[in-house]
């Protein structure tokens, strides 16, 4: 078990224990995001919506990668919001070398970049690939699996906002049950997305036996930064799956983006863990457990579960059961944070 706040060794800062930083923490132990000279790899002026979780997660992740590689990082981006809102021709928000090719081939392009560096015997420059859940769990999935299987020296980061947000909120294989999307309307006997299926890419990644797999969330930014930093110090195929709420697609208030993410972690629906070579090595315990309702209620995509005339108790229970199963499987409760 690592510390709940990996950057903070002394548990003596009641105020600011969970904040980004604290004046009492040794300057060298502070987050990249707390430093005045952070890279701002994804800088101002991008066209993401107000309160975009993906923009936040991506700056954290790529800044951490840049710091860990002494600014020697190339990013490969799949098509999706992150690509579109950062690079409307001829502008870019990226202050790093950055490549975009197609929606479904980012892992393969990253493999190619890594191979080219190898040919040139360049050991300093590191490769990060990134994409949305659609680009990762659906269309890019074959390339991704190949990249894992060959153990290519790439860190792949998936920003999971649980749908094809860039094209207007369509369902992906990462869309949760009951969620309303443009293609899973809240109508009929089984409103919203179906139950019982879905694709858990972190677990699939683990099944490839790669050196490092982790889940992270913008609810715990210290942890996100620590995981990216850790991954950057490992070679071979690595995968980090970051939960990034989308105010537009989820129907949550822009100021609630971090809150939704936090509730999703605290209710158990999004477990935070690390795995090395197929084995879970670390989980982040739930600090203040909440029922799933608290998470669901503040999103319009689940509004049909809470209709005044007939709340959908059965489906809410089914979602709670998913959370409970995660809590059991990953041992998310109890001491040891």
């Amino acid at each position: 078990m690592t510390d709940l706040n990996p950057q903070q060794k002394v548990k003596f800062y009641q105020k600011g224990t969970y904040t980004t930083s604290n004046r009492l923490v040794d300057a060298r132990a502070r987050l990249v995001q707390a430093s005045m000279d952070r890279n701002n790899s994804l800088t101002c002026g991008h066209r993401a919506c107000q309160g975009c979780g993906e923009a936040l997660g991506a700056r954290y992740a790529i800044d951490a990668a840049m710091r860990a590689s002494h600014n020697q990082t190339i990013a490969v981006n799949a098509t999706g919001c992150l690509e579109v809102f950062t690079t409307p021709y001829p502008e870019t928000s990226w202050q790093i070398p950055w490549v975009h090719s197609l929606f479904g081939n980012a892992p393969a392009v990253a493999t190619g970049v890594a191979a080219a560096l190898k040919v040139r015997k360049n050991k300093q420059v590191r490769v990060v690939a990134q994409g949305g859940d659609g680009g990762t769990t659906d269309i890019g999935f074959g390339c991704l699996s190949g990249m894992f299987e060959r153990n290519d020296d790439v860190l792949y980061i998936c920003y999971d906002n649980q749908g094809y947000m860039n094209t207007g909120v369509q369902r992906s294989s990462a869309t949760p049950p009951a969620a309303r999307t443009a293609t899973t309307q809240a109508v009929g006997d089984a409103p919203g997305n179906v139950f019982g299926t879905g694709k858990n890419v972190p677990l699939i990644a683990m099944a490839h036996n790669i050196p490092y797999v982790a889940t992270a969330s913008i609810a715990n930014l210290k942890d996100l930064e620590a995981k990216v930093t850790k991954a950057m110090h490992i070679h071979g195929a690595r995968y980090i799956h970051v939960n990034v709420p989308c105010p537009l697609g989820w129907g949550s208030a822009p100021h609630d983006t971090v809150r939704v993410a936090r509730l999703m972690v605290e209710c158990g629906l999004f477990p935070l863990f690390e795995a090395e070579f197929g084995e879970v090595t670390n989980v982040i315990k739930i600090r203040k457990r909440v029922p799933v309702e608290e998470y669901l209620k503040i999103q319009k995509r689940f509004a049909h579960l809470f209709r005044k005339d007939k709340p959908d108790i059965e489906r809410i229970r089914a979602i709670q059961a998913m959370a409970d199963a995660n809590i059991k499987r990953y041992k998310l409760l109890g001491e040891g944070a």
Binding site: F12, Y13, Q14, K15, G16, T19, T20, S21, N22, R23, L24, R30, L31, Q33, A34, N40, L42, T43, C44, H46, A48, G51, C52, G53, A55, L56, R59, Y60, L221, T257, V258
Partner: peptide, 26 residues
């Protein structure tokens, strides 16, 4: 020292860097 550090700094910035780090728009 422990007791002093229990203070929440209600209403006044204590430079925790939350805002700086959490802004999606830098």
């Amino acid at each position: 020292l422990f007791e002093a550090r229990r203070c929440l700094s209600c209403g006044n910035c204590f430079e925790c860097d939350n805002c700086y780090s959490i802004c999606p728009d830098n």
